[in-house]
Amino acid sequence: MEALNVKDLQVAYDRKAVLDQVELSIPKGSLTAIVGPNGAGKSTLIKAILGMLKRSSGQISILGKPYSPKNRNVGYVPQRGSVDWDFPTNALDVILMGRYGHIGWFKRPSKQDIALAKEALHKLGMADYADRQIRQLSGGQQQRVFLARALVQDAEVYFMDEPFVGVDAKTEKAIIDLLRELKQKGKTVIVVHHDLQTVPEYFDHTLLLNRTVIANGPTEQVFTEDLLQKTYGGALAFFSTNGDKRVMS
């Protein structure tokens, strides 16, 4: 079954199409990278799929059903810059927010919810930071808090917007371990990714995007020099070191 299916998606700002004729499907249980140059509409794609931006046209289905937040099968990790870090809240509290969909109206988080949140913190190596105000965390720690929050959402399909940007090596490792664990549990993870070098290592499925879908398929088939040049408009330089193919944008 397909985790995500998008048909004829168009998004326009001020009459200019940012995304046009986007058609794609992503298999269930994959780790997918969305790759493309700046301004290719990667974040826009995710936001449009999840209904945070107005679509001019397009049908979205998740796990075979039309997408609705009410199904609670989607988890989302926003770009790190998108929240107010001065908000009066601590790490544990942010993670608990991921449970709000399950808790429902008028109710408080239960002991079980809190236990789940603590477990997620622990899993990401953040158990000592539960009480920290979020501004007092390092960039990597902030990112891990947001991942933990997605984890407790207990979704089937995860969307993550550039989770690897500006994080330390330890966090990068923690994130990738988490992604693999999710995959093992049969979840689907779709990641907007910036660092071309790590795509083949981390992801088994790749979507090349530049205002529309350039290519979409298993990483080994899609992640080729040809298609990348096409995506980046020829602005890439390839060179090899130690036999590995390296890419610079």
Partner: peptide, 9 residues
Amino acid sequence: FDAALAVTL
């Protein structure tokens, strides 16, 4: 705090 998450929930 995070209207985007609220939308997805």
